[in-house]
Design a protein around this nucleic acid. Sequence first.
DNA 1: TTGAAAGCGCTAACAC
DNA 2: GTGTTAGCGCTTTCAA
Lengths: 360, 360
Amino acid sequence: MSAAPTVYDVADKAGVSIATVSRVYRSPQSVREPTRDRVLEAARSLGYVPSGNARGLASRTTGVLGLCFPDYADPDVDAEGAGPDGDGDDDGAVVMLYSDQIIRGMERAARRHGYALLIAASLEGGPESLVAQVAGRVDGFAVLSQTVPTSDLEVIAQRLPIVMLAGPREIDHLDHIEVANADGVRELTRHLVEDHGLRRLAFVGGQESSPDARARFRGFQEACRETGLPVPSAPDLRAEPMTQAEGSRAAEALLDREGPAPEAMLFANDQMAVGALHALERRGVRVPEDIAVTGFDGIPLGRVVRPSLTTVRQPMRRLGEEAVELLVRRLGDRTLEPASLMLPVTVVRRGSCGCGPAGA
Amino acid sequence: MSAAPTVYDVADKAGVSIATVSRVYRSPQSVREPTRDRVLEAARSLGYVPSGNARGLASRTTGVLGLCFPDYADPDVDAEGAGPDGDGDDDGAVVMLYSDQIIRGMERAARRHGYALLIAASLEGGPESLVAQVAGRVDGFAVLSQTVPTSDLEVIAQRLPIVMLAGPREIDHLDHIEVANADGVRELTRHLVEDHGLRRLAFVGGQESSPDARARFRGFQEACRETGLPVPSAPDLRAEPMTQAEGSRAAEALLDREGPAPEAMLFANDQMAVGALHALERRGVRVPEDIAVTGFDGIPLGRVVRPSLTTVRQPMRRLGEEAVELLVRRLGDRTLEPASLMLPVTVVRRGSCGCGPAGA
DNA sequence: TTGAAAGCGCTAACAC
DNA sequence: GTGTTAGCGCTTTCAA
């Protein structure tokens, strides 16, 4: 691991100029074969690896796309492994699936276009923040909403393409992709009311500050209105972190409320719904016979719990893929009008609402 | 999106030198506050974003760590979304969890150390391959075994730290982390024999070329030897892709063999074991009453199938974290002896071997 | 087909 | 505390 060999070293050893070395890597067919072989051989023996930095500097592109996502978990908590059975992992696996899927989608699409992917969970501000870490090293990047301060984005957007993911359009001159949160819940709710004949519905929302959670509740309201049910002005309950534990708690609270128990509980995400399923089982309440339960997201876990979870599937992977498409498109033509995509969601009817094979 | 502003533009506008602009970003406290504010203000108004390339070139570091992993799935298959219910996703979600977990682990650890993470699934060779894409842009990187040709790694390793993940140590002067495949299966097998009194065991392996699958079978052999059972020289069966479908097929083949049915089926991974569970259920064979089934990996799916799957959990996230630690350590001192870690695995006793709450 | 030379935008001594 | 000045390793005209 001595000083890094450069084009000069390779050129010397191969008896050519640095320009030729460069050509061997950038357009091999423009160099005669014997020359090319000599260069490659020299490079190999020297352990030469082209410097991406120098290359990027000279050519003004990086061949890298980026993704900034929120820092869900405390990085220090599970630093050195979980407990004996590591049961703690599970919720983690579920939580992150969200960004994992986006990463996967972006990685694939990026690869198709010849880009690598740089990922970074958001750090705090400061001039040396994620902005510098990521923005300065990529040709363009995607940002999950509420990850990077709008003011930073405004600055960076002057310089390179940014696409905003999931969440409302915070900056209207940027490309933007969101998911049809309200539509999904509306359709799901109508299914509960119209197909299953349920009328006492309870909605468990999330943080008030979450635009996604708000949009989902809005879908619920719309469905109530459309089906002639009383339109609530706020969720029956809000769960602060939208976890399984909070879902359990919420389900029990709903059960313990005065008056007749609800016929259905709609949760703003799958994790809470799964937690609720556990709580209901503990209380001896049968799902879906006594009560229907639904979630939102379409996490893998939802299809294997019993009863399997009726939910609204978000096309996370596709979100990542479309993000890359948008970036690549804009990289090709900076003058394009800002695009705003709304990706459709799918209501997935499974056991927990009374559809599908309820049991096994 | 006009020409990118540079330190010169900012310096001009702020009435300082470029060195001062640089200092504002690299060591803010070494610049007097009024000066700093002027610079920041100028930068902001210009939409200045420091060029990671120029920076890296000048400072000879990137602040980025990399990961190269195999390209499991065909990138074109699910390009434009899956079917209506998208059931195809599921297996994909399960398969990829492997690298997803490593990515997650690396990302977290990298962040703790102030690095971002560059990821790329392997492309085919050629001078402009992934190697160049990644290797030239990071300070060091991790490679999942059998992803990058050994010869390429040899070359790159002369230049920057590489840690090899999962799989045998292909290059002995590189840092390397593997998982205790053999130990895990040996312990699991002994549990079956010693605690459940099972003696007719069948082992379903994977591709012969897979070092992991081979190591797992070796663990099985060791346990047989240690418990006085006949030691098989080869797995009872090999599944070519280690999928649920192949697991089902294998289970049926095992059932249809002549002679007494096995009392336990050990699979080289969880996916096959889950497939087997389905097949056995279809055939009316009860698990664990009639036969025990075990897997390997510890995928989330395993804990929610019924009966829940007894398996050996691999510490994937930790693998990623340790990889970063090794890289960071070596970045700090290139003369360190190459390290070789063997991460312990955990036998997870659940319903499918007769432990734990068999049913619900 | 190959070479010479001028940057790309920044950092890091070293002066002041 | 701030400015000057060399490069960092590559790509890219422009000539030959």
